[in-house]
Nucleic acid binder design. Structure first.
Lengths: 336, 336
DNA sequence: GTTAGCACTCTCTCTATGAGAGTGCTAAGT
DNA sequence: ACTTAGCACTCTCATAGAGAGAGTGCTAAC
């Protein structure tokens, strides 16, 4: 692949990113100052197609980038862009807040990323098998209420507000807190909901059953063992011609909202700091005309979850890469 | 409108609810045992059309119910159905949990209703001007963290987990809690975020700025003055032929996710216990082929918010009415 | 009041046609 | 040896016309 072919490939892809229409030799010659005629470009295009960088929808249509073409473009041809000052500020500002709730954080991050890029964004935090309970508090909360707060070593706090029977006094809650802290702290979160309460029962007496019930609603517990995932900006897809059929939209919806699918999508990123997956590389049937730009979220040393922008393969990779990278960096800084 | 015409209208609507296709006199005669010929039915249909209960998409098509037709059907012809035992159980079970968080409650309710009916469901709780702060607590939470818990007289609890500077000791938090409780309790929630802190400043000294910042992230405060709304089950719409064009889907998405629009939609219900809005009755441009079945959520005496199922006008009103009614009743029982 | 019959209307599907865009190949030019 | 003009060919898309199918409204007979 010589230099000229690279330039031609880049030109085809850039034009296709804008127009979403197959690119023909004529318009390519006219719009770019190659100093080459359409006929010469046709030869170049034929070579690029033969080598698999371009596809043709049908015999007499222009060329369209293939997965391999996009891949080459992203790896070698793309000029890494930096975000505008406003965008960078917007991202920094978002992480200046004091809030430290898992759900709030996820939603803010997804919304921010979708807002900046104009594509849907998804954040997922699988309940990490490694996450351990640091503290567990049960606090009186108005009449008949109690707050259950659980802090893990991932830096995020899970919490639930519960109602409790009237005959449970604040002192009882304090007792439960003491017992639970002693018995459960340091325990992997995944086990908390299933913990056998033999020890607890003796210590808690008549409240044992209540505690068991309370623990089961803890996020990450029985009722919410699915990973916590948030998708924002789905509606941006309505604007792209590649999703003008309902079936396409539906397939992407399915992909983005079914936790198992998103989970597979994002855990596939492993611990790469910044990764791009194009079309078939996603290895999801529904995703063959999608691309994903993702990053790994860390807390302390280990992998906390992933954040990604998902959009049509015809995506503004330069911009999205910069945005995802920046957001992940700010997140990691804020929680690291 | 004599009895026979009513029966004909009901038959047309029932058939249209199933098929989504205009109903012709021939099939109508064949499927229903009216003991009448197609020709006679044609006369009846012509009358019903003239009176505005039916429409014709074009001259030589069958009949389709009009808003007025659906309205008559819902008000007079519909046989109120009861939910199946399983459905009723499912709804009851959902409200047996001890959780009392606003967001959790909203999401559960919307998901439940959508799951039972097969249409999208939406729950909205506008920040009630009448809601007053009952208690406000600031509790230490792990290292560098604090939980801000605010209980209002609507029975739901708002809360945020925050990070705080390292030099703020638990004792400081206790002080803040005491001062804030004294100064703010009984205050309408809407004012809390804007409260002038003259009194507080004296009492809190160097922590005043911090407190001010914390209060601003309180739900219902500055950063979240929009009503809390949740939509679940949007994807059910993909299955209906009336939404097979992306523009339709997009319009409904817009309607359901823009808080101002949902707000208008649902506050339009006033305090009706159970209400049906059909097509143009919604008074929303995007909603002219939608219907809504909504109910009012109460807490104590006053209106807390609304819950609704939104779907195509061609909706299984009997089933949806029963489900919405039941869910609202359970909610009101759980929080009343 | 009900029904059969019939002309009429409108949509939907299928087919044919032509315009437009683009390709691949060949032969000539540099 | 590379580049370019020219041209035949292919494929899609938009348009128009024909015919089938479904349904209506009206009339006249029961």
């Amino acid at each position: 692949m010589d230099d000229r072919k690279s330039r031609v490939l880049a030109a085809v892809i850039n034009q296709y990113l804008e127009s979403a229409e197959p690119v023909g030799s004529r318009t390519l010659a006219r719009r770019n100052a190659f100093g080459l005629s359409a006929a010469t470009l046709r030869n170049e295009l034929a070579d690029l197609e033969e080598w698999g960088y371009l596809d043709k929808p049908h015999t007499s249509a222009g060329r369209v980038p293939s997965d391999k073409g996009y891949r080459y473009y992203v790896d070698r041809l793309l000029v890494r862009r930096t975000l505008s000052a406003q965008e960078a500020d917007r991202i920094r500002a978002a992480y200046r807040a004091h809030v430290r709730e898992a759900t709030w954080f996820l939603q803010q991050t997804a919304r921010l990323l979708s807002g900046v890029t104009g594509y849907p964004a998804v954040v997922i935090i699988p309940p990490p098998p490694t996450a351990r309970l640091l503290s567990l508090q049960l606090l009186p909360m108005g009449e008949g209420g109690a707050a259950l707060l659980a802090e893990t070593d991932t830096g995020l706090v899970a919490h639930r507000v519960l109602s409790i029977p009237a005959d449970v006094a604040p002192a009882d809650l304090a007792l439960m807190t003491a017992v639970l802290s002693r018995e459960l702290s340091g325990m992997p979160l995944a086990e908390v909901a299933h913990v056998h309460l033999a020890n607890l029962e003796r210590a808690l007496g008549r409240h044992a059953a209540l505690v068991e019930e309370l623990l089961s609603v803890l996020p990450g517990g029985d009722t919410e063992q699915a990973p916590v995932a948030t998708v924002e900006g789905f509606d941006t897809l309505f604007g792209f011609p590649e999703f003008h059929e309902v079936e396409r939209i539906r397939a992407v919806w399915e992909l983005l909202t079914r936790h198992t699918l998103v989970g597979r999508l994002l855990t596939g990123l492993g611990d790469e700091a910044l990764a791009v997956r194009i079309g078939e590389e996603l290895a999801e049937a529904a995703g063959h005309d999608l691309s994903l730009v993702g990053a790994t979220l860390r807390s302390g040393g280990h992998v906390l979850g992933h954040v990604a922008v998902v959009g049509p393969r015809r995506m503004d990779y330069g911009h999205v890469l910069a945005a995802v990278e920046q957001v992940a960096a700010e997140w990691n800084r804020a929680l690291g």
